[in-house]
Amino acid sequence: MRKAQFQQFAWIFSVIVGALILFFTFFFLSQYAKQVEKPSRQITIASGINILVEPFSAISNLAEIRAEILELPKNYVVEIGCEKNYNTIKAKNIKEKYFEISEKVYDKYIFSKTINTSKNNKFLVYSMPIEIPFHVGNAIVIVTEDACLKDLPYKKNELKEVIEELEIEKIPKINFTGCDDKNKYNKGEGDYGNLGGKIWIRNLVSAAVFSDKELYNCNLDRILDRAIKIADILKGKAEIASVYGCDYGNIVGILEEYKNKAEKLKGNQDLAEFYNIIKQLEDANRNLPIECRLF
């Protein structure tokens, strides 16, 4: 009798312990899968925005026009923001409430409207050197919708050439030749029309077309901040090099005025005076002997 009871207990015990082992195995495996799944989703989106986030990535730093394809996971929303010293890139799945990824980018000036990848997950992204009149950095522009840049006033052909080399189908396109009714740029409609005088900084015209007013103005202030620092460095260089036989005439004074005008331009829309000083600086530099030129 006791032996039979003991055998029955042994069976029940082994079934309970077996069930517990199975339960814990599945529990830990499911926990592990959840842990792995979230970072892997983040890695996928992060690798997509890598060319924007990576410090000093080639697309942003060389003083030439470059274009690449930005490929993001499907069903994502990516928002580009701007603070005093950096751009922010936030990304989340369309179904999610909160942003899974939030990155700060310090060395780039990114211009884009909100990216939604539910219909299309590939976008053209190009960089264009900002020269006012010296090189300050590169504008990174993400083309999120079709647009026409027939009358682009600066480096239109170079941009066209670089973009045409990519030959990617089914992405928002830039039309460089003819414009239809949807065109925002040539008609002065949409966000472009609201930007006011500030957009007319040379190659930032196309950046204005593809970003909203707030982002554009904030990035422009960041660019002006850096231009002021570089103007200071150029002024310092002129002072040092003048000892070695270069006559810089009034260029140091122009650079000082440039800094004042750039500072004044931040936060207001009046570009006329700033244009004059850009032109003056450009001419003064061009008139220097080649070996003495500052930029």
Binding site: G137, L234, K235, K237, I240, R293, L294
Partner: peptide, 26 residues
């Protein structure tokens, strides 16, 4: 990143891949 730092407008020469020493001094 090395190449990119050398290409920063704060350090780079007018043309080509080089560093402007007087810019560095400034």
């Amino acid at each position: 990143m090395l190449e990119s730092i050398a290409n920063m407008p704060e350090f780079s020469c007018r043309q080509g891949f080089c560093i402007d020493e007087q810019k560095v001094l400034a």
